[in-house]
Design a protein around this nucleic acid. Structure first.
Lengths: 329, 329
DNA sequence: ACGCCAGATGTAACCGGTTACATGAGCCAG
DNA sequence: CTGGCTCATGTAACCGGTTACATCTGGCGT
């Protein structure tokens, strides 16, 4: 009752395995008669080709490995969705492996991909350049996502945080806001770092007053940050949080304190999560699915022709009523 | 510059492939000296075993295939997260394939899994029992999720919609509500069907007045449904939508019409999406990640010992302020 | 009638691992 | 000194496909 193999089909059709293989792969040089016998045998045996064996002899897997850290839901599903969309369009499967722990665990996850996939999409923000280079199976085309380390050696795609931040600050400046507060994300998060740095620069460029307070990407930290500022009697007319969650926390704290948004204080987030749309918040939309799509696209194209270098993925400002009362929700 | 194989390692270490294989797989019967030479050779060549070849000879892949339809973000990421968590715990990888189109496309997706995975987790709500049986590679252990067709033949796990609905209706009845409205989901969605049927039954059991109006799982349809009821002058004191999105639409329509929630009209959803928590809505929580976890767990356990039958996955009522003003948010 | 060629089919090596079985070395008991 | 045992190691078959190359057939030109 074991699974039928191509040899079983050959025996049943009274032909050689070579002919069967050719017929199944749509070669021209197979007689009509042979083709019929083979189709019949396949149906009778319920034969399904063994993709693993096929991959081995073709040295080609039609699969892409995806290695991600433990991600927040929204990002994860959108990213995978994007990759999947492009993958199924091109006849590839996605082999998923999450990078829970660090170090050795990560190396194993990457190694397990060898011989099962034709390329790797890796997001490993917490890995150093050396660890990463050591862990990546050499000779397996890889593309790095939002990973600053080793960007020179491997093709990579990064979210263009600076561009998003500039768009926000430009927008706030154009609305006449002068005293901006940035609620930063966790210090060990690269996106948070980049957003903070870009904020400093953009504020300097516009000659605005820019203040930075700490946050950790959670709603509560945004709320707490604003309460502290208000309690300290700090003056400001705009809040730009490093992500939407904190911006929502900020929004609630402001409204609880009786501040009018956006008339007195404008609020801007980053990411454009569904909730942001619901509360009509101005934010920076990151088309994550598109990022995944691009990554896969570039990787698969690169399987044919090597294409190194770093690419940026541009986000987009979405203006809603927490900055502009005229913007409808 | 091709990848090193085990034979290269053997040559370099001046040993046979058998010894190398044994050493790499941690067998006891390898001398210390041989082991050292092998470790050195592996390091020098940067050898990484070819998982595909290994799978072929072991007839074991350490991978589980996951075939899902095009799902809503929240569900998808939670489900995959759950499976992944359990998979990595057990040393399995996840091979993902989305089921975009129907029929032949679906069959191909399933076939492509043969020989790359040890088992299949399939969610194919739109496939008939026959199609499904035909498409599933025979001899590949499979577990069906939220798929009514062919539940008898294969092990499966279903969301217990009826239990969730009963909990809601019990809760509303205990609050003294008598005239309930159910905003149903799309007619071709199985969960929507089950929720609607269960609603009819629960309402009958309690001897309540139950009315059903159409919806399509989108926020707007919930809003429209309520507006229509109000315009028609229909009397009701509770709304139970087949999902949270529609419940939120209903909530907005009620508030826009000046109705007080929950004093005049209670509102309940289904799913417990993050937004539901934010608007403090009573709903039925479906622990999707847990569902994924269970599916994988059961499948992998079943690889050892076949365990047929159908299992139910129970959801849980979460009471918030759209039904009970005392419930804090 | 014969050689040549095209086209269908078969044989067997190969992809990169694992492993049953064979071999050979070293040790000890008789 | 030798038979028999243990233990490390090697040889080669095997997993299930693909494919280079060999073989066979029939048709055609001269």
């Amino acid at each position: 009752m074991a699974e039928a193999t191509i040899r079983d089909v050959a025996r049943r059709a009274q032909l050689s395995v070579a002919t069967v293989s050719r017929a199944l792969n749509g070669f021209e040089n197979v007689s009509e008669q042979a083709r019929e016998r083979i189709t019949a045998a396949v149906a009778e045996l319920g034969y399904v080709p063994h993709a693993g064996a096929r991959s081995l002899s073709l040295a080609r897997n039609n699969a892409i490995g995806v290695v991600l850290p433990d991600l927040h839901g929204e990002f994860f599903s959108e990213f995978v969705r994007g990759m999947d969309r492009e993958a199924s369009r091109r006849g590839y499967l996605l082999l998923l492996s999450n990078l829970h722990a660090g170090g050795q665990q990560a190396a194993n996850a990457l190694r397990a991909m060898r011989g099962r996939v034709d390329g790797l999409i890796v997001m490993a923000p917490h890995l150093g350049a050396d660890e990463l280079s050591a862990a990546l199976p050499k000779g397996l085309p890889s593309i790095l996502i939002n990973t600053r380390a080793g960007a020179g050696e491997h093709p990579s795609i990064h979210l263009d945080n600076a561009a998003g931040v500039r768009a926000v600050v430009d927008h706030l400046a154009s609305l006449g806001r002068r005293r901006l507060v940035h609620i930063a994300g966790p210090a060990d998060n690269i996106d948070a770092q980049e957003r903070e740095t870009a904020f400093r620069e953009a504020v300097a460029t516009h000659g605005l007053d820019g203040r930075i307070v700490a946050g950790d990407f959670e709603t509560e930290s945004g709320e707490a940050a604003i309460r502290r500022l208000l309690a300290d009697g700090i003056e400001f007319d705009a809040v730009f949080a490093a992500n939407d969650n904190m911006a929502i926390g900020a929004l609630e704290a402001l409204r609880a304190a009786g501040k009018r948004v956006p008339e007195e204080i404008a609020v801007v987030g980053f990411d454009d999560i569904p909730l942001a749309r619901h509360v009509e918040m101005t934010t920076v939309r990151v088309r994550i699915a598109e990022l995944g799509e691009r990554a896969l696209q570039r990787l698969v194209d690169g399987l044919i022709k090597e294409s190194g270098g770093d690419e940026l993925h541009a986000p987009e400002l979405v203006i809603r009523s927490t900055t502009d009362p005229k913007a409808n929700g």
